[in-house]
Computed example of a mutant assay.
Amino acid sequence: MKFLFVGSSPDHGGAEVHFTALAQALQEQGHGVEAMVDPRGFIAAELARANVPLHRRRFRNVIDPCAHARLHRAIRDFRPDALIGNFGKDYWPLVLAGRMAKVPVALFRHSVTALNPLSSRWLPRLAHSYFAVSHYARAVYADHGMDAQCVQVLHNPVDVRRFQHAEQVRAQVLAELDIPQDAIVVGYCGRMRSKGIYTLLEASALAMARDPRVHCLWVGEDGGGELRSAAAFLPHADRHRFTGLVDDTERYYSAFSMLAFPSLAPETFGRVSIEAQACGIPVLGSDIGGVPETLIPGSSGLLLPPGDARAWKRGILALCDPAARAAMAVAGRAFVEQRFSYPVIAGQLVARMQAGR
């Protein structure tokens, strides 16, 4: 099949990573892929690196006439079998273009904020496929009044060739950060705001008091440095390391002994959880939102009550056992390969787009 992706976002978040990963997954399975994207930012750069042909134009708003003309030219020239959209600004232009060109449209929704009543009622009915990225999100959309029968679930894909454990890389990262090679590294990856990071900070301090091998590695943007400042006043402050924003997160997963995903507010899904498990890293995740769909509790990780620092301390100490981590590493990698790998998710999308055509 041939897929034309349309993405007007210049940002670098979960929806943008999903957009590029899904395009690459289809391309790797031998499907034709082109994309009409904002010429700035992450999406254009990532797809250019993957040699996806780009139409560099974005929708400034729903009625942007130049963008509509560019989209119709791309459809005419490429003759796609399906149009794919991830961002709210692109939903109505894609539905209208798909109807005019008689091309099926698949829309992905990543946020759980409510759409306006018109869009909530009609977009899932007018699109060929309307996807939530978790069962949790689908339930929230139904609570907002959307017809759940019009919403399907298709999880995020992950490149299991890119995300895999490398012991040599682990040794290099630990040496670069001056962390002992025998350390038990509690890793966090993501933006350091509104994700329960202070629960994890408290829990890690309690775990460090119990086990001198425990260290914390914080990967991501620390805004104004508030978390780093807070860690400096804790006992064992010398066991915390901060990398800042990085592009090669898979490298740091290899250095983790476990990933902590301590969200307080419900996450729509939780990509970092499946990326870490692909790298053979057990996950401590908050039992909230879409996070439970990203791991096998007791097998590839542990679900813990959000905001309960003492429960998170117990979870960290439980995974200080190397035998427990080794078993979870094998289970987690197999789980991701079977549920979230590029061939699996690309195959599911193709099957659903072909259904009813």
Rank of each mutant, 00 (worst) to 15 (best):
Val95Trp: 14
Leu115Asn: 10
Leu4Pro: 08
Ala327Glu: 07
Glu337Tyr: 09
Pro39Asn: 06
Met258Glu: 13
Ser119Phe: 11
Ser229Gln: 15
Ala171His: 13
Asp287Val: 10
Glu34Leu: 13
Leu118Pro: 04
Arg60Leu: 10
His128Glu: 04
Leu303Arg: 07
Leu302Gln: 06
Arg99Gly: 12
Gly190Asp: 14
Arg325Trp: 12
Asn51Phe: 04
Lys2Ile: 08
Val133Ala: 05
Val246Phe: 13
Leu177Thr: 04
His155Ala: 12
Pro292Ile: 01
Gly220Leu: 15
Gln164Arg: 14
Arg162Tyr: 03
Cys216Asp: 10
Met258Val: 15
Arg352Val: 05
Lys313His: 06
Val140Phe: 08
Asn86Lys: 03
Gln164Glu: 09
Ser134Tyr: 08
Ala351Asp: 09
Ala276Lys: 00
Ile179Asp: 09
Ile281Pro: 04
Ser300His: 12
Val291Glu: 00
Ala106Arg: 01
His128Asn: 04
Glu293Val: 05
Met1Val: 08
Leu206His: 10
Ala137Lys: 02
Phe335Thr: 08
Ile43Thr: 02
Ala260Leu: 12
His215Cys: 05
Thr243His: 07
Pro292Trp: 00
Val186Tyr: 08
Ile84Met: 05
Arg76Leu: 04
Glu337Thr: 14
Ala106Ser: 05
Pro65Tyr: 08
Ile197Gly: 11
Ala278Trp: 05
Glu221Asn: 12
Thr113Ile: 07
Gly224Arg: 15
Ala205Leu: 11
Met208Ala: 12
Phe3Ala: 11
Gly98Thr: 13
Ser111Trp: 00
Met1Pro: 11
Pro212Val: 03
Met328Trp: 06
Met328Leu: 06
Ile316Gly: 08
Tyr188Leu: 15
Met146Asn: 06
Phe269Gly: 12
Arg161Glu: 04
Val105Tyr: 02
Arg170Trp: 02
Asp247Asn: 14
Val17Ser: 12
Cys66Arg: 15
Gly7Thr: 05
Ala318Thr: 08
Leu54Thr: 12
Arg60His: 08
Arg193Leu: 10
Tyr253His: 07
Leu154Cys: 06
Ala25Val: 01
Ser8Val: 04
Asp321Asn: 15
Lys2Glu: 12
Glu337Cys: 13
Arg339Asp: 10
Tyr130Thr: 01
Gly14Asp: 00
Tyr136Cys: 02
Met100Gly: 11
Ser134Ala: 12
Arg251Lys: 09
Ala205Thr: 15
Val219Ile: 15
Ala132Glu: 01
Asn61Val: 00
Leu284Asp: 05
Phe87Leu: 11
